[in-house]
Simulated scan of single mutants.
Amino acid sequence: MFQEQSSVRLINAVLFFAANLVSIVIFSRGNCGLSKCITRYLVGMAVGDLMVMVFEVILYEIKEGYFPYSFLNYTPICSLNVTLFFVSIDWSVWLTVAFTFDRFVAICHQTLRTKYCTEKTATVVISVVCLLSVLENVPYYFTWEPGELIDNVPWFCRVKEACFTLPIWAAFLWLETILTPFAPFALILLFNSLTVRHILLANRVRVGLRGNKNVDSQADPEIENRRKSIILLLAISANFLLLWALILIFYIFVQLTDAQFLATTYNKPITIMELSAYMLRCLSSCTNTFIYAVSQKKFRTELKTMVGCPMNCIRNAVKC
Rank of each mutant, 00 (worst) to 15 (best):
G65V: 00
Y66F: 14
F67I: 10
Y69G: 01
S70E: 12
F71T: 12
L72T: 13
N73S: 13
Y74N: 06
Y74E: 08
P76H: 09
I77F: 09
N81E: 07
N81K: 00
N81T: 15
V82C: 09
V82Y: 14
L84W: 11
F85G: 13
F86G: 03
S88T: 05
I89Q: 09
S92I: 00
V93D: 05
W94V: 01
W94P: 03
L95D: 01
T96G: 08
T96N: 07
T96Y: 13
V97S: 02
F99I: 07
F99Y: 10
F101G: 08
D102N: 11
D102F: 04
D102H: 09
F104R: 00
F104G: 01
V105W: 09
A106R: 10
I107P: 12
C108T: 10
C108R: 08
T111W: 03
T111G: 05
L112D: 08
R113S: 11
T114N: 11
K115Y: 08
K115I: 03
Y116W: 12
C117W: 02
T118Y: 05
E119D: 14
K120L: 12
K120I: 03
T121M: 12
T121V: 11
V124K: 04
V125R: 01
V125S: 00
V125P: 01
V128G: 04
V128M: 05
V128I: 15
V129R: 00
V129S: 00
C130D: 06
C130L: 11
L131G: 07
L131K: 05
L131C: 13
L132Q: 04
L132I: 09
N137Q: 11
N137H: 15
V138A: 01
T143E: 13
T143M: 14
T143I: 15
W144N: 15
G147S: 10
G147D: 05
G147P: 06
E148P: 00
L149F: 14
D151Y: 04
N152I: 02
P154E: 03
P154V: 06
W155P: 04
F156P: 02
F156M: 04
F156E: 02
C157I: 07
R158E: 14
R158Q: 15
R158W: 03
V159T: 13
V159Y: 02
V159R: 10
K160N: 06
K160R: 14
A162C: 07
A162W: 10
A162R: 15
C163A: 15
F164R: 08
L166F: 10
A171F: 11
F172N: 01
F172P: 03
W174Q: 08
L175D: 12
E176R: 11
E176L: 10
I178N: 06
F182C: 15
P184R: 02
F185N: 03
A186L: 11
L187S: 08
L187E: 09
L187V: 09
I188T: 01
I188H: 00
L190N: 05
L190D: 05
F191N: 03
F191S: 03
S193M: 12
L194E: 05
T195R: 00
T195V: 07
V196L: 09
V196P: 03
R197T: 11
H198A: 13
I199N: 05
L200C: 11
L200F: 09
L201N: 10
A202P: 10
N203R: 15
R204E: 15
R204L: 10
R204W: 13
V205A: 10
V205S: 11
V207I: 14
L209E: 14
L209F: 08
R210L: 14
G211M: 01
